[in-house]
């Protein structure tokens, strides 16, 4: 590819991105593409940098390769982050056990594939179902009785549930890592960048799940109830909404998405272990905060930012600094705009 062509393509991508930004309101408000906005933006930004690097004559392959890897990692973070953000929206709880639900999903998927000989899609469904049930159980047993207690009590309970799931996992699944059978091999060559099929699958499945979530939250009755509860629980109750059911549904949906993330991570990074949920859980939570906690598109945005930047840090600096990037971003965001990138400013009434 000549530099001139690259420059032209760069202009094109920038124009496309500007167009997307200009019609952001339209895209985000009422089309089915609401939650695809951020993945799409991320893709365009990466393409732009790619063409820029080509135009400058620099080594672009490495960058794009890493960035594309970042997108699939970001998809996983985003899927987990959605659960955090939805639960926080509804009951204002940082559900520390959520990362472990993702672990449960990964194991459910693993056994569905290895023991039940299921193929990818049914295994994904099984994993989502098992995670949803686990999530709802955790809510019913540990959180529901404490719904009116101080937030700290609930937070500690969540931490307790997280430790419990992890250690139960150690007992049930043993601490020996399991390895997912490879389901998607092969890779495609796009503009000289080789992209693994598994990573494409991760990205595509994530987008599909986002669209499904978008439909659920926007157009269905339980979705509407969920939004109502997250705005004002008491008012929603007075409107005849069954709060318990809505909260359970929120946990079910959020946990199912985490379960899906567990399977998706298994096809890219096949080793799974009972403690696999701790770090991704924390980082996904950070992603939710960066995007603006309680805001669903924010979780997407935060997940993509963390996924891509983590991969770039690993590639350009050192993998030992990788864990600092999410938390570094977190601090910057919190200090600059504590309610997150998409969050709204609130003021305490005196």
């Amino acid at each position: 590819m000549s530099r001139v062509v690259a420059l032209v393509l760069l202009c094109l991508v920038v124009a496309l991105f500007a167009l997307l930004r200009k019609y952001r309101a339209v895209v985000v408000s009422n089309t089915a593409f609401k939650y695809s906005y951020y993945p799409a933006s991320a893709l365009l930004v990466i393409l732009a940098v790619n063409f820029l690097l080509v135009a400058l004559g620099a080594d672009r392959l490495f960058f794009v390769q890493q960035a594309v890897y970042g997108l699939s990692l970001g998809s996983v973070y985003a899927l987990i982050a959605l659960g955090y953000t939805m639960v926080y929206g509804v009951i204002k709880l940082i559900n520390f056990a959520h990362g472990d639900i993702y672990m449960v999903g990964a194991y459910a998927g693993y056994y569905a594939v290895t023991a039940l000989n299921l193929s990818f899609v049914p295994a994904l469904v099984v994993a989502m179902a098992v995670s949803a049930v686990t999530g709802v159980l955790v809510e019913r047993i540990a959180y529901k009785p404490l719904r009116d207690s101080p937030r700290i009590t609930l937070l500690i309970t969540a931490i307790g549930m997280s430790l419990l799931l992890e250690n139960l996992g150690q007992k049930v699944f043993t601490s020996t890592p399991r390895t997912y059978p490879s389901m998607f091999t092969g890779s495609y060559n796009v503009f000289g960048v080789s992209v693994d099929l598994s990573r494409i699958i991760v990205f595509v499945v994530t987008i599909l799940l986002m669209l499904a979530l978008q439909y659920f939250v926007t157009y269905t009755k339980p979705g509407r109830a969920m939004r109502a509860v997250s705005q004002d629980r008491d008012a929603a109750r007075l409107m005849g909404i069954d709060i318990d059911r809505v909260i359970a549904a929120t946990f079910a949906v959020g946990s199912a998405l985490a379960g899906a993330a567990g399977v998706l991570v298994g096809i890219v990074f096949p080793q799974i272990r009972p403690t696999m949920g701790v770090m991704p859980g924390l980082k996904a939570f950070v992603a939710a905060v960066i995007g603006g906690i309680g805001i669903i598109p924010g979780a997407m945005l935060g997940g993509m930012i963390i996924g891509v930047s983590e991969n770039l840090v690993t590639a350009y600096i050192s993998s030992s600094w990788r864990d600092a990037i999410a938390f570094g971003f977190l601090i910057l965001i919190l200090l600059a705009k504590p309610t997150g990138i998409l969050g709204k400013h609130t003021r305490e009434k005196v």
Binding site: I94, F285, V286, V289, I293, D323, A324, F327
Partner: peptide
């Protein structure tokens, strides 16, 4: 300057950063 949950998350972040450093 942060409060409640946000403060908790920020301290968590700093704790992790100290360790990574």
């Amino acid at each position: 300057r942060l409060r409640g949950d946000y403060l908790a998350i920020a301290t968590l972040g700093f704790g992790e950063i100290i360790r990574v450093v």
